[in-house]
């Protein structure tokens, strides 16, 4: 009884915090979606008009684009952060602190200022522009080589363009690539830090053991290092993916009209159109689109784990009965 009481007392502050600043605001946002809006920017009467307004063919496209770009940002961030974290964890203690500090250093400069700096670097006369044009030419050539149905698929998911590259319209500024590039730049430290702290705790003698057992470096990295820093990997993915889903400053400043994400739409509805219920509905839609597949995946994994456990039990029982194979 007293133990239970103590548990309640200890967890109460964080529970209250979550209620006040997460659960209740979320409920309010969802509740707003079932209201109309007033012309002066207020929340109107109970109605389903907001959800009716949401039936717009643009929205699924934007939601998908946001998810796809967030995945791409996460992919590149993790790809760059993994060797980085590995290298830092293997450094001498003195160097670790210096390099970790250097990674955090950009945070001393204002975020918007840094994005403006990128805007200068991505100027159409700059060398990044020439690199970019070479890249899209290469990509077009790559997709041209694909079988038509695959090419159509990539066009359908907006990974490929149906028209050949044109130097006049293909500027890196105001493109998806610019948004991804700068998002990776801003979010990379958030990927490196959890990975680094997991890698620092990782027992590198396990890598020696793997090498000793005949594993090639990459095999050991994949089979021993990655599972060893699993927790760090998961938090790094979340730390990058969640801000990427909600980002609107970078697409606003660098994406132009070619990269309007859900964040920009919410911003537009809430600030420009002063339609709070509509903005809330978009936010809810986005949250559901992200979390529904995640929940499905979680359920599927639990289901798989249960199946595996049953198989293990069967195998163990068979072993006990004496038949090894």
């Amino acid at each position: 009884m007293t133990k239970k009481f103590r548990e309640v007392v200890v967890t109460a502050p964080s529970f209250l915090w979550l209620m006040l600043f997460f659960a209740i605001p979320s409920i309010i946002v969802v509740a707003f979606t079932f209201h109309g809006h007033t012309p002066n920017g207020g929340v109107g009467e109970w109605s389903l008009s907001t959800w009716r307004e949401l039936v717009d063919p643009d929205y699924p496209v934007i939601v998908w684009k946001t998810i796809r770009i967030s995945f791409e940002i996460t992919f590149w961030c993790i790809l760059l952060a993994l060797p980085c974290a590995y290298a830092i964890a293997r450094m001498k203690t003195k160097w670790r602190a210096i390099v970790a500090g250097a990674i955090m250093l950009p945070f001393w400069t204002n975020f918007v200022v840094r994005v403006f700096a990128w805007k200068t670097m991505l100027h159409p006369d700059g060398w990044l522009q020439s690199c970019y044009f070479a890249f899209i030419q290469f990509r077009a050539w790559l997709f041209d080589g694909l079988p038509p149905f695959l090419r159509d698929f990539f066009i359908w998911v907006h990974l490929a363009s149906p028209t050949p590259p044109d130097p006049a319209s293909s500027t890196i500024l105001d493109s998806e690539t610019a948004v991804i590039l700068v998002s990776v730049y801003t979010l990379l430290p958030f990927a490196i830090m959890p990975l680094y702290s997991a890698a620092e705790k990782f027992d590198f003698s396990l890598m020696e053991a793997a090498r000793d057992l005949g594993a090639k470096s990459f095999y050991a990295f994949r089979k021993v290092f990655l599972p060893g820093i699993r927790q760090g990997l998961i938090s790094a993915i979340l730390m990058v993916f969640i801000p990427a889903i909600g980002s609107y400053v970078i697409p606003q400043m660098l994406g132009g009209t070619n990269c309007v994400l859900i964040g920009n739409k919410i911003f537009m509805r809430a600030i420009q159109n002063r339609n709070i219920p509509h903005a809330s509905a978009l936010a809810t839609l986005m949250a559901v689109s992200v979390f529904l597949p995640l929940l499905c995946a979680l359920w599927w994994r639990r289901h798989q784990a249960a199946r595996e456990r049953r198989q293990v039990e069967i195998r163990a029982a068979r072993l006990m009965l004496g038949g090894t194979k």
Binding site: S205, L206, A209, G214, A215, P227, R230
Partner: peptide
């Protein structure tokens, strides 16, 4: 050559079976 390490260096995320099978699976 193969080593038996002082701290054993068993892979913590693998079962006993998977630990022993590691070298063979790699090969």
């Amino acid at each position: 050559v193969n080593t038996v390490f002082q701290n054993y260096a068993l892979f913590p995320h693998m079962t006993v079976f998977e630990n022993i099978a590691f070298g063979l699976r790699g090969a």
